[in-house]
Simulated assay, not measured.
Amino acid sequence: MPPDRLNRNDAGGRRLSRQALSTPAQDLKTSLRKVSAGSHGGDPILVDVVFVHGLGGNDVSTWQPDESESPECWLNWLAEDIPSIAVWSLKYPAGATKWTAEGEGMALPDRAANLIPTMLYYGIGSRKTIFVCHSLGGLVVKQILRHSTEMAQPEWQKIAESTLGVAFLATPHSGSSLASILKAVRLSRATKTSLALTAHCPHLKELGDWYRQNVKRLEIETAAYAESRRVRYRFRLATVVNATSANPGVEGCILTSIDADHIDICKPASRETDTYRGVETFIRRQLTRLCDDEISLNEAAKPAPESTLDTQGPQTLDPQERQTLLPAELVQQIREIQAMGDMKLLDPFEVKELKMGILNRHYGVGDE
C-alpha cells in the first residue's frame, strides 16, 4: 500500500494510519520524474510544471486516487490538455515519524538546499516554471524560492527568476494541528520533517512573511486551495490544515475551499473536479502571462514602422491565414488564446480581439 493511502472508517471520515505517515525504504531518495515531455502536438514547450508532494507522500501515489488501478493520473491529463507544458513530479524523503524513516529527516531549510541542485540537474530554471504543491510541499517550495534568492549561489537564482506561479493545495502556511499532535504524542517520535509543520512555528511565520513581501517583486502569482472535510487521526476526527493556515495571505490570492479532505484534495478522480479545473486554469493563466510578456518585449524591441506601411495589407488578412507569416512563438500565442476560447474561458469576441491585437502589434499597425 502506498504511503499516503488511508483506511475507511464507520464514522465516514478518513483514518490516518501509521502506514499512511511512513516512508518506505524505496522512497528514501531524491529524484525528479518527468511525467510527460509535452509538445505531443508539435508545439514548443514553454513551461515546466513541477508537482511537489507533502508529508508521507511520494511522486506517484500522492497524486493518484485511492481506487485507481491506472498508472496515469491528473498529471498526465494536464500534459495532454496543455501541450506546451512539461510535467514533472519531485520525490524526496518526507517520513512523519522516526519509526518509519531513517534517522530524523531534514529540517525545512536543509531540505530546500538539498532539492535545488536536483532540480537544476534536470533543467528546471532553464524555462519558466510553475509549482503545484500539496501540504508540506508548499512550505518546501517557499523555502526553495527564498534560498534561490538569498544564498550566494548564482546558479540557484534561476529557480526564483523562472517561477511564474505557485499553486498551494492544503499547505499549512502557519502550521498544522496534526503536526502538533505528532509532537505531543511521544510514541510518534516526530521527525524534523514533521516538526516543521508544527502550528505557530516561528520559522513558518518568518517564511510566510518573506513570501508575502517578495512574491510581487519576483512576479510570482499565487493560488491557494483548502480542504473542507475532516480525516480521522487515532481516535478523533480533525481538519489537518484549517482555512486560516491554508491561506498564504498574499494580495490578490483568494483562498478556494475544495469539497475534499486533506488527502483527496490532491487526488482528483476526473477532469470535472474542482482541483483539476482550478489548477488547469491557473496554468493556462500563467501561459497567457508569459505570452503577454513576450509580446511586450517584442513590441519594445521592434523598430518604428515606416511611413509607407500599407495598412490595408496585414489588416485585411484572416488571422488563420496570417499564422503562416508569423514567427513560431506568435503562432503559439494564438493557439493558446484559441484553446482558452474552446474551454469557454474567453468569449468569441475576446478571442478575436486578442488574436487581432497580436497580429497588429507584430505588423506595427496601431489603432488610428
Rank of each mutant, 00 (worst) to 15 (best):
residue 70 S to D: 15
residue 87 V to M: 11
residue 79 A to D: 12
residue 125 G to A: 13
residue 83 P to V: 08
residue 100 T to D: 05
residue 70 S to Y: 09
residue 108 L to M: 09
residue 93 P to V: 05
residue 99 W to I: 13
residue 140 V to R: 08
residue 81 D to L: 12
residue 75 L to W: 08
residue 129 T to Y: 05
residue 118 T to A: 10
residue 92 Y to E: 03
residue 141 V to A: 15
residue 91 K to R: 14
residue 144 I to W: 11
residue 72 E to I: 10
residue 112 A to V: 03
residue 87 V to S: 14
residue 70 S to G: 06
residue 85 I to S: 03
residue 118 T to M: 07
residue 105 G to P: 09
residue 139 L to E: 00
residue 129 T to F: 07
residue 113 A to G: 09
residue 120 L to P: 07
residue 102 E to M: 15
residue 64 Q to M: 09
residue 129 T to H: 03
residue 97 T to E: 02
residue 71 P to T: 11
residue 114 N to R: 01
residue 94 A to L: 10
residue 96 A to M: 02
residue 75 L to I: 15
residue 71 P to V: 10
residue 144 I to H: 12
residue 124 I to Y: 04
residue 104 E to V: 14
residue 113 A to H: 03
residue 125 G to K: 14
residue 131 F to K: 08
residue 130 I to K: 11
residue 136 L to M: 06
residue 88 W to N: 06
residue 120 L to Y: 11
residue 131 F to V: 01
residue 133 C to M: 09
residue 67 E to Y: 05
residue 138 G to S: 03
residue 101 A to N: 15
residue 89 S to F: 14
residue 75 L to P: 08
residue 65 P to Y: 06
residue 117 P to S: 06
residue 95 G to P: 12
residue 93 P to N: 04
residue 84 S to H: 00
residue 69 E to W: 15
residue 66 D to L: 06
residue 97 T to D: 00
residue 76 N to T: 12
residue 97 T to F: 01
residue 92 Y to K: 05
residue 124 I to K: 07
residue 143 Q to S: 13
residue 145 L to H: 06
residue 78 L to G: 02
residue 129 T to R: 08
residue 111 R to Q: 13
residue 94 A to I: 03
residue 120 L to N: 13
residue 124 I to G: 05
residue 136 L to T: 01
residue 87 V to F: 14
residue 140 V to G: 07
residue 80 E to I: 09
residue 65 P to S: 02
residue 139 L to S: 01
residue 86 A to S: 13
residue 99 W to S: 11
residue 127 R to K: 12
residue 121 Y to G: 07
residue 78 L to N: 02
residue 134 H to S: 14
residue 87 V to Y: 08
residue 134 H to L: 13
residue 97 T to W: 00
residue 125 G to T: 12
residue 134 H to N: 15
residue 108 L to K: 07
residue 107 A to K: 10
residue 76 N to E: 06
residue 103 G to A: 12
residue 71 P to A: 06
residue 76 N to V: 08
residue 136 L to W: 00
residue 145 L to K: 02
residue 68 S to V: 10
residue 138 G to R: 02
residue 70 S to R: 07
residue 129 T to N: 03
residue 137 G to M: 07
residue 112 A to L: 09
residue 89 S to R: 11
residue 133 C to G: 07
residue 112 A to N: 07
residue 140 V to H: 12
residue 62 T to C: 04
residue 121 Y to C: 10
residue 125 G to W: 14
residue 69 E to S: 09
residue 66 D to C: 02
